[in-house]
């Protein structure tokens, strides 16, 4: 049973990451490969505040959101100068740079040694010990984020985002401040990723910089492309599929060396075949331009 709870927690964390990235990539059409950086900022902020300063989980998660928000505002402003593949490349560059900070700011982040012994959250002095309680916590966060995302998508703001995605110039002509729209959604998305980071850090209880590299960003992107851009439910399906895939492969009992690579090959082939035959993803509504 513990095992399913574990899978459930990991699923909710990645579902948060996927849904939030979809707001930027799917709904606004900005191919960001920096999501793992914001995931990491949230995780680090929570880990440091919880372990070194004994600050409540919710406060430290809030600080993580704030930091990720500020970082994403800066990064977003720089990225707003770029388009399409240059945007993707520059965002990837920012992920590398943020990761370098995690590695090199030894005194704050612990460098490559990382931060062990991160505590579990507590409510009014009551620590969440059992994984089941943690599952509920993750579920609550996930539901909140999913509902907020759905609200954004269905609001007039969300419609404006899709309009930007489909024809930026037209919208600019109508007097919309396109840059502000892009920035706002980028910051919101980064703050959501930071929450996923907070949950991740206090659940796994150990983080180091290798968790937040561009490989992770590519993985999250794979989730939403598989599930479908511009579809929140698609992101859930993508996350479910890709989180369970390694578990399936382990169960199949392939030799270990093979299993790890087979998993990679499946990721890769999935991307190729989707692009060739179903660029909208499993249940997506939008095709990249």
């Amino acid at each position: 049973m513990e095992y399913f709870i574990h899978i459930g927690i990991v699923f909710f964390i990645y579902a948060i990451l996927a849904v939030s990235l979809n707001l930027v990539v799917g709904y606004t059409g900005l191919l960001s490969l920096a999501h793992a950086a914001f995931f990491g900022i949230g995780a680090y902020a929570t880990a440091i505040l919880l372990t070194k300063y004994n600050i409540n989980f919710f406060v430290s998660a809030g600080v993580g959101m704030g930091l990720a928000g500020m970082a994403s505002l800066f990064i977003g402003i720089v990225l707003s100068k770029f388009k399409d593949d240059y945007y993707a490349l520059a965002s990837l560059g920012f992920n590398v740079i943020v990761c370098s900070f995690f590695i090199n700011l030894d005194s704050i982040t612990g460098g490559v040694i990382g931060i062990p012994g991160i505590k579990k959250p507590s409510f009014f002095g009551l620590e969440i010990h059992s994984n089941f309680a943690y599952l509920i916590l993750a579920l609550v966060f996930f539901v909140i984020i999913f509902l907020v995302s759905r609200f954004i998508v269905q609001s007039s703001f969300g419609r404006a985002l899709r309009a930007i995605r489909d024809d930026e110039n037209a919208l600019a002509v109508f007097g919309y401040k396109v840059l502000n729209f892009k920035l706002v959604i980028f910051v919101i998305s980064a703050m959501m990723a930071a929450i996923a980071g907070s949950l991740f850090a206090s659940y796994i209880t150990y983080i180091d910089p290798s968790i937040f590299t561009i490989t992770e960003s590519v993985f999250i992107l794979t989730i939403i492309i598989l599930g479908g851009l511009s579809s929140l439910r698609g992101s859930l399906l993508g996350a479910l599929f890709l989180i369970l895939l390694p578990e399936y492969l382990r169960i199949l009992g392939l030799p270990n060396d093979t299993a790890a690579q087979v998993r990679q090959i499946i990721y890769g082939l999935a991307l190729i075949f989707l692009m060739l035959y179903r660029p909208k993803g499993l249940v997506g509504e939008y095709e990249m331009k």
Binding site: I5, I204, Y206, D208, I211, P246
Partner: peptide
């Protein structure tokens, strides 16, 4: 670490 925890569970 994430993988290790998965396997452990």
């Amino acid at each position: 670490p994430k993988e290790a925890l998965s396997i452990y569970q």
